[in-house]
Design a protein around this nucleic acid. Structure first.
Length: 489
RNA sequence: GCCCCGGUGGUGUAGCCCGGUCAAGCAUGUUAGCCUCUCGAGCUAGCGACGCGAGUUCAAAUCUCGCCCGGGGCACCA
């Protein structure tokens, strides 16, 4: 019944072998850094499919490297996922399932599909490169099991042994040349403490977890070594699953790389991981990007294997479309100059917060003393007529540094320019305008943050941090703290 | 070096599997005009792309081969 559409696919492409009500998906973050827009998009894709196919969704923390994992990062992901409105059916940590992973490890050993190896790192690497097996590969099962028990009993320290999967040392795909399944890491884990020192690597842990969770479809960016993982799953007699991989979500001027970002935080070049220029979810949130925008954007760009670099303008445009109907309009006058208006009537005007939608209104009392933006009147000559938005027309009687004007009637004159204004009862505010963090070649962009000062009408005092408004003829801005806004884009 | 995977306008994508309806759609961007008193809103119009070269075919963005370019993997990271 579905017609082949020549142009314009709606939504994400259908999933292979997906039966409604019998699907399982997962969000597998490693809690070793803050959640980024890249995670957000990958998670959104999984969530969209989970909804579409009425599946189960797991939030699974891949925390099998005690050296990298930190408690605050678990929270970062939980917070970000909740903010996005993604509802997971289950949450777990891989570190909770060590016994199950050990059981699979032992099974591989018993089957002769894995072995304990005491070669040092350099030797392993060299032999792997040369395609030559080491002497441990053919050790009897009993020997391997004995070492295994000793490893579990913590009789061997870091670097002593590694448990390797028996792949194919001649395979052209190097990752199949007996990859490592377990290694000893003596450092305490933030959740399990010193209980375990033998930690599984990603490929094995993943296979076991996907089986346990009933995952049917794996959708993740930069998936790799899929062939290896399939071999491990086969050796363990696990179900086959659909793996769909897509390339990373990169944004122009905003690499996600911790190598590049961390120094900026440490040197306080940015205000923190939640700086509005950062590609973190916290940064985006502070900038005024709303969850729906991330969802719509993800749906719009979808996923591909093509290398890409998104332009912020697309996300920001989607964001504006969402913000537009629900954002109050408030006057903001950047770089203000006083404007004395001769003959100005004293008015008490009630102005709606939104031109079309009922978002309430505010009342402003005006007299002969107003402020407008210097940029608006700068180029005007004496005698120019313009309109103070939603108020009345004025005629410039004196141009230049100290502009003056006179009242010029209420009626709307077609094609007159309209400027926003504030009364003496205004608030001084500043707006930071975030730009791209990096220039070409990973060079920090000194001009990535601009500050605009000006006057905002008194009603801004009623806003709460987090509120997003539109300053007409300026842009959408989010109140970050009293007197300080961040421009959304 | 070896192994995967990609290459559609400035950007992101649709179309590619099952060749014609594609002188290539949509979004973003940009230009111009309109606009009920904002705009980075809305409306209208314009701009702009199938990596290169062969081959198959009546017909190729779509199939085949070669080349070039890009990304990822080849960790006791995930």
């Amino acid at each position: 019944m579905e017609e082949k559409q020549k142009h314009g696919r709606v939504g994400l492409p259908p999933l292979p072998n997906a039966v409604k009500g019998k699907t399982g998906f997962r969000l597998p973050p490693e809690p070793s850094g803050f959640m980024t827009i890249g995670h957000a998009m990958a998670f959104t894709i999984n969530y969209l499919y989970k909804e579409q196919y009425d599946g189960e969704l797991w939030l699974r923390f891949e925390d099998t490297n005690p050296r990298k994992v930190q408690p605050r990062y678990y929270d970062s992901f939980r917070r970000g996922i909740a903010w996005l409105g993604i509802e997971c059916d289950h949450e777990k940590n891989v570190s909770d399932d060590m016994e199950a992973i050990y059981a699979s490890g032992k099974k591989l050993l018993e089957q002769g599909d894995a072995y304990a190896c005491s070669c040092d790192e350099a030797k392993v690497k060299r032999l792997r490169f040369d395609g030559v097996a080491c002497e441990h590969r053919d050790n009897p099962v009993e020997t391997n099991l004995r070492i295994w028990d000793e490893l579990l009993a913590k009789k061997h320290g870091e670097g002593s042994y590694v448990v390797r999967f028996k792949g194919d040392m001649q395979s052209p795909n190097y990752s199949l040349r007996d990859t490592n399944l377990f290694r000893v890491i003596a450092q305490a884990h933030p959740l399990t403490g010193e209980r375990y020192t033998l930690w599984p690597t990603y490929d094995l842990a993943n296979a076991v977890e996907d089986e346990m969770c009933g995952i049917t479809h794996v959708l993740r960016s930069s998936e790799f070594r899929n062939e290896l993982q399939q071999l491990i799953r086969d050796a363990l007699k696990f179900r086959r699953l659909e793996v769909i991989q897509f390339s990373r979500f990169n944004f122009k001027g905003t690499p996600v790389s911790k190598r590049l970002l961390r120094p900026l935080v440490e040197k306080k070049v940015v205000s923190g991981w939640d700086d509005p220029r950062m590609p973190t979810v916290d940064g985006l949130k502070r900038r005024g990007v709303v969850p729906q925008a991330i969802r719509d954007f993800t749906l719009q760009v979808g996923y591909t294997k093509t290398e890409h670099e998104y332009d912020w303008s697309i996300l920001l445009s989607v964001n504006r479309k969402i913000l537009d109907p629900v954002s109050k309009r408030l006057f903001f006058v950047p770089d203000p100059v006083p404007l004395a208006v001769e003959g100005a009537p004293d008015r008490k005007v009630e102005l709606p917060f939104h031109p079309q939608n009922d978002l309430g209104s505010r009342t402003i009392s005006t007299g002969g003393e107003l402020f407008v933006s210097s940029g608006d009147v700068r180029g005007l000559t004496k005698g120019s007529v313009f309109r103070l938005m939603d108020l009345y027309n004025v005629e410039l009687t004196s141009a230049g540094q100290k502009p003056a004007a006179k009242y010029a009637g209420d009626e709307l004159i077609p094609n007159t320019r309209k400027f926003q204004w504030v009364t003496p009862d205004h608030a001084e505010v500043e707006v930071t305008v975030p730009g791209e963090l990096f220039l070409e070649g990973d060079v920090y962009n000194e001009g990535s943050l601009k500050l605009v000062r000006g006057f905002a009408e008194g009603a801004v005092s009623q806003l709460k941090p987090g509120d997003i408004v539109q300053f007409p003829r300026f842009g959408f801005c989010r109140l970050d703290s009293p007197g300080h806004f961040i421009m959304t884009g």
